[in-house]
């Protein structure tokens, strides 16, 4: 377990850098997490983040896999890689304050 400061709060993270509690997440925390990956959040990013959080809420907190995001969020696969170039599979979930996705696709 790690702690790190995001948006002025000391937050607990897993060893892989995902928020331990999705309840710690705020839009400001998302901006701070994104900045760490060199990303400035645009409305397209927010579409993805909002979809991930809504889907996770329906799936008992589990992060959606990337394929699911590309099918249902309205943002396609190519765009997901453009928006999160360092690995959308983990980054979208991480910035959305969700656990590391378990899905392989």
């Amino acid at each position: 377990m790690l702690t790190h400061e995001y948006a002025g709060n000391q937050l607990q993270l897993t060893d892989e850098g995902f928020l331990v509690s999705a309840a710690d997440w705020t839009p400001e925390v998302a901006q701070s997490l994104a900045a760490e990956a060199g990303i400035v959040l645009t409305p397209e990013h927010w579409t993805v983040i909002t979809y991930c959080r809504e889907d996770a809420a329906r799936q008992s907190g589990q992060s959606p896999g990337l394929r699911r995001i590309s099918q249902y969020s309205g943002v396609g696969m190519k765009d997901l890689y453009r928006l999160f170039p360092k690995g959308p599979g983990k980054l979208a979930a991480r910035i959305a304050g969700l656990p590391k996705p378990k899905a392989c696709l």
Partner: peptide, 16 residues
């Protein structure tokens, strides 16, 4: 578990 507060190593790991 021990709580640590690394700064750079962590950021490098999550955002290589």
């Amino acid at each position: 578990t021990a709580v640590t507060t690394p700064t750079t190593p962590f950021a490098e790991r999550v955002a290589p």
